[in-house]
């Protein structure tokens, strides 16, 4: 599952011109290596990058039927009825894709549970501005006006964190 995103690193290996080339030129170039070795190399490099935490991660999460690209400190406005209350801390578990500067993890359709944690706090709950629903038909004496407000919840994304190493056995988080 996780290997899906790693081909980008593989391309860095082969091109010898990518960002990582500095790190990797001492190793044998991947072109003549069997595939299994390349895969291993890519995974170890990725794990190293994860441990260093040198760059900010982003993730695409699935929330209330919509997909959002989030990163640390983002604000999300979720519209419609949603039970959580102000101050609740929640983790957004449906992560479709997580990535950093030099690698991306692509889920089929979700990345393995426990690998990426996206935590969020609910900041405010309220109503949207008033939307006017106005209908009129010409020459038919038909006119209707209604006003509607939707419930809105504002979320602050606290952090997007890649917890485990790639290809570790999934820890049973649920």
């Amino acid at each position: 599952m996780i290997r899906a995103g790693l081909q980008r690193l593989a391309s860095v290996f082969n091109n010898q011109g990518g960002i990582l080339s500095r790190l990797i030129t001492q190793n044998a170039p991947a072109q003549h290596q069997p595939i299994a070795d390349t895969t291993k190399d890519v995974i170890t490099t990725c794990n190293k990058l994860i441990e260093e935490k040198s760059h900010r991660n982003f993730a695409i999460i699935h929330l209330l039927g919509k997909q959002w690209r989030v990163t640390d400190g983002d604000l999300l406005v979720v519209e419609g009825y949603w039970p959580p209350n102000i101050g609740d801390k929640i983790t957004l578990d449906k992560v479709l894709l997580a990535a950093s500067k030099d690698f991306s993890l692509i889920g089929r359709p979700l990345v393995q549970p426990g690998l990426v944690t996206v935590t969020a706090t609910i900041i405010s709950k309220g109503l949207s501005h008033t939307r006017t629903h106005f209908k009129k038909k010409r020459r038919k004496q038909f006119m209707r006006i209604n006003f509607q407000k939707a419930q809105q919840t504002i979320l602050r994304i606290n952090n997007v964190d890649i917890k485990n190493n790639i290809n570790d056995a999934p820890k049973n988080v649920f």
């Binding site: 899906a4 695409i60 997909q67 690209r69 479709l96 894709l97 889920g107 089929r108 359709p109």
Partner: peptide, 13 residues
């Protein structure tokens, strides 16, 4: 290949 990203997130990427 069972990657279910929608239009919004694909265009974002």
């Amino acid at each position: 290949s069972n990657i279910l990203l929608d239009r919004k997130s694909l265009s974002d990427l």
